[in-house]
């Protein structure tokens, strides 16, 4: 299913776990250190360096860009490390996160409450994922190196809906289906 970024609450509410999406538009990368800094800023009453309303955050830190490419290999990192920061960012309007692996027990209820989704990127397929990134621009926390916040323009970036706005969890249902012991 082809989906445009930024997402809207109407679109997000139509999504179901297991849906394979191809995203086109702008999104931001941020992971451990950038999350810590953004949330500390918000908690002090400040503004994060990016406007989060209806935006999508990709938990990723790419390889450096080779001379002829906008970006190096890029793929999702383990999402659970960002869990403690999620609600603060949801309150700022964050609508989707792209990562890998399952999340803490308290995340699905938050997806329901704030009408947001957790999307799974294809962990390990970073070379072909980089082909979907057409533009990349470092926009904040440059001192964090690989972990800085970048704005990416992606075309048909493939992701799978992992937790939907009903709070359903793809991994939980998928694993139960194939579990034999």
């Amino acid at each position: 299913m082809k989906v445009k970024l930024p997402l809207t609450r109407e679109v997000v509410e139509e999504l179901n776990i297991g849906d394979v999406l191809e995203l086109t538009g702008y999104l931001y990368t941020a992971r451990d250190a950038a999350h810590k800094r953004m949330v500390e800023t918000i908690e002090r009453g400040g503004k994060p360096p990016i406007e989060l309303d209806n935006q999508t955050i990709f938990y990723a830190a790419p390889c450096p860009a080779p001379p002829d490419k906008p970006i190096g290999s890029i793929g999702p990192t383990t999402s659970v490390r960002m869990d403690p920061y999620v609600e603060t960012l949801l309150k700022e309007g964050l609508i989707a996160m792209i990562g890998k692996g399952d999340r803490s027990y308290y995340i699905p209820p938050l997806m329901k409450k704030y009408k947001a989704v957790y999307l799974l990127g294809l962990g390990g397929a970073a070379a072909i994922m980089a082909r979907k990134v057409k533009e990349a621009r470092e926009i904040a926390y440059v001192d964090l190196g690989a972990e800085s916040i970048k704005e990416l323009y992606v075309e048909n970036l493939k992701v799978i809906v992992g937790i939907d706005t009903k709070g359903r969890i793809l991994q939980e249902e998928g694993i139960a289906k194939y579990r034999k012991i």
Partner: peptide
């Protein structure tokens, strides 16, 4: 579908001499 992407990724990375995974 995931395995198919991983196979394509490995072949593309080798051919183009780029990192197969961003976590090097």
């Amino acid at each position: 579908e995931v395995l198919d992407e991983l196979i394509e990724n490995a072949e593309y990375a080798k051919e183009n001499q780029v990192a197969s995974c961003q976590d090097t």
